[in-house]
Design a protein around this nucleic acid. Structure first.
Length: 362
DNA sequence: AAGCCGGGGTC
DNA sequence: GACCCAGGCTT
């Protein structure tokens, strides 16, 4: 036996062991009872950068609200965004809607059925294309997600920084070779991700009960805690949001966010962003038209403060409630509309805003 | 290649 | 507080 077939043997044992492990340890998840590409796709988009436990209730809600891709295509985008509210990365919801409409209107409702064609859809990248192609259509193409990077880096002792382009090619090539040894490509793809989620976890992997312990370079060399290698991200940026919450009786002024910024297409209040933290209304430099509302109005109580942590930003928000006199209700800045408290409940909003409304007006 | 885009769970 | 999650898009 030459060195190459020996290596292949090792890889085959790894692949077949994972598939066997999966049949015994897999969780019972709703999207594992279907091969309908619409449901598979929906679940995969929801699960992008999202834990199963967080995404599952959203999946149930989407499936019951939009039983077919046609239902989703027909849906109002605002309603879809509201259903997505709280899940984050809202471009996923907008892309979901676009792709649903594209498949319904341009492809006669027939979902693309190859990795190659799936990649062309909005919001479907290499991971999701591979997931749908293998789970729904049985195509032999490997998924490479965060779990796979971790499992492969440990198993094969790969030291490359997984954030680099070179490493992505290394892992993709290895994954492509491995899936050739799989008994069933869909099962293998599921198994390596499930294995990463349950057994080969980021911290405190359960190596002592690991079925491929003796094949794992990291375990055999005591490196499992420091693999995969991943470059540190830039520190989170601090942002200071001063929200003017214009109120008139039981109505509040809100607008849709349209800038190239966080929370696109979600609703919030009049916003002044400052470079430094502020604590008083009089320190804010406001446009004259807005200042008119402020000086003519009555500031209710002290501003509420709230901090929202994103993966890349720390938002420190202050909410100043301004009671606008009836005479000035037509002077709202462009884009703003009065909404009753009840109506604001129907608007898609960032969690920061939802929490604030709940706390102050709920 | 690097930056941007959420929110939540876990240690 | 740090890490990271069934990533993708834009520049």
């Amino acid at each position: 036996m030459n060195w190459q077939s020996d290596l292949n043997d090792n890889e085959s044992v790894f692949v077949l062991s994972l598939e066997r492990w999966y049949e015994y340890h897999k969780r019972d998840l709703p999207w594992r009872h279907t091969r309908d590409p619409y449901y598979i796709w929906l679940s995969e988009v929801i699960l992008q950068q999202t834990r199963v436990a967080q995404g599952k209730p959203y999946y149930e809600r989407f499936v019951s609200t939009y039983p077919t891709i046609h239902d989703m295509a027909r849906a109002d985008e605002r309603e879809l965004l509201r259903l997505w509210q709280g899940l984050g990365y809202y471009s996923r919801a907008r892309n979901l809607h676009q792709t649903a409409r594209y498949v319904t209107d341009q492809l006669d409702g027939k979902f693309p059925d190859t990795y190659h064609d799936l990649l062309k859809m909005k919001g479907i990248g290499v991971y999701t294309a591979a997931a749908v192609a293998s789970f729904a259509f049985g195509e032999r193409v490997p998924v490479v997600d965060g779990n796979v990077y971790r499992v492969l880096a440990r198993m094969f002792g790969i030291q490359e920084d997984i954030t680099t382009t070179g490493a992505k090619k290394t892992f993709a090539a290895l994954a492509t070779r491995l899936i050739q040894r799989a008994d069933d490509p869909a099962t293998y793809n599921q198994s390596i991700m499930e294995f990463g989620a349950i057994q080969c976890t980021p911290v405190a992997p359960d190596c002592l009960l690991c079925p491929v312990q003796q094949h794992c370079v990291a375990y055999l060399t005591g490196q499992q805690h420091r693999l995969p290698v991943k470059a540190k991200k830039a520190p989170v940026r601090d942002r200071y949001f001063q929200y003017l919450v214009f109120r008139n009786n039981d109505r509040i002024a809100m607008r849709e966010r349209t800038d190239r910024d966080i929370w696109q297409n979600l609703y919030d209040f009049y916003l002044l962003e400052t470079d430094e933290p502020k604590t008083a209304l009089r320190d804010l430099l406001l446009p004259d038209s807005v200042n008119e509302l402020v000086v003519s109005g009555v500031q209710a109580s002290v501003p509420a403060e709230s901090i929202q942590l994103l993966s890349h930003q720390r938002i420190r928000a202050l909410f100043y409630v301004i009671d606008v006199p009836d005479a000035l209700i037509d002077r709202l800045p462009i884009g703003f509309t009065w909404y009753s408290i009840v109506e604001t409940g129907n608007l898609p909003k960032p969690v920061l805003i939802t929490n604030y409304l709940e706390k102050s007006f709920g």
